[in-house]
Amino acid sequence: MAKVKKYLVLALVIFVAVITFLPFLWMVSASFMPTGASNTYPPKLFPEKFDFSHYQVLFSRLNLTRYLLNSIIISLGATFFSLFLNSMGGYAFAKFRFSKKESLFKFLLSSMIIPGQVTMLPVFLLLKNMGLINTYWAIIVPGMASIFGIFLIRQYAFSIPDSMIEAAKMDGATELQIYLKVILPLCKPILVTLGLFTFMGTWNDFLWPLIVMTDSNMYTLPVALANLSSEHVQDTEMLMAGSVITIVPVLIVFLALQKYYIKGIMMGSVKE
C-alpha cells in the first residue's frame, strides 16, 4: 500500500513538473521555428528544422546585445551594492551598540508597509534632480539598500556569537577587518540568498526601468522585449527567442547558486 502511495505521489510530481516545464520547452523550441511555424494547426511541439535566424536578427538588427549588456551591468551593479550596504547595515543593527538602535530599526521596518508604487514619483524626481535619469545609476541607486535586505542580514548575523567578534578584536582585527574576514565569510549563505533575490528582482524588473530609461539605448531586456512585442505582434518566434535570452541568464544564476540559496533559507530554522 505504501509503495502504491509512493508511486502515486511520484506520478503527481512528474505530472506537475511536466505541466510547468512545457511552456518553457515550447518557448525554446518555438524560438527555433521559422516565422509563422508556431501558429500552424496542428500545433508542433518541436521545430522540423532548427532556424537560428531570429537570434541573428535580435542580435544584429534589433540591438539586443546592448540591452543584454545593460541588464547585466545593472543587475550585477545593484547586486554588488545591495550586498555591500545591506550586509554592513544588517551587521551593525545586529552587533553594534548605539543609542536608539531598536527604535531606529523599528522605524525602518515600519516603512516596509509603504507600497513601492507610492515612492516611484518622489524617487523619480529625486533622481531627475541628481541628473541620473537615463543612466545605469537610476536603477542601481534606489536598490542599493533595502529594509528587507538589512532585516535578512540582521536576523542571520544574530546567530554569530559575540565572542567570535570579540576574539577577532583580541586577535588584533580592526572593525573593517572583522567585517571583511569574519562576518562576511560567515554570512555567505544569506548573502547568496540576498544576492539571488536582488539579481533576479533587478533583472526581471519592468516598471522601474521603463520609467527611468527613456533613451532606447538604455533599455533593459524586459523593456526591450515589451517593445519588441508591440512592434512584432505577429512574430511569435522572434518574441520567444527574445524571451529565451531574457530568461536563460537568471536560470543559470539560480541553478548555480541553488544549493547555497536553500541553505540560506533553512538556516536558523532549527537549533543545531
Binding site: 565572542s163 570579540e166 576574539a167 578584536k169 586577535d171 565569510p185 560567515l186
Partner: peptide, 20 residues
Amino acid sequence: IPPKDRDIAMVFQNYALYPH
C-alpha cells in the same frame, strides 16, 4: 587603549573559533 593594542590574549568559554 583598544584590545588589540593591549598585548593580551583571551580564551572564551564557547571557544569562539572562526568556523570558516
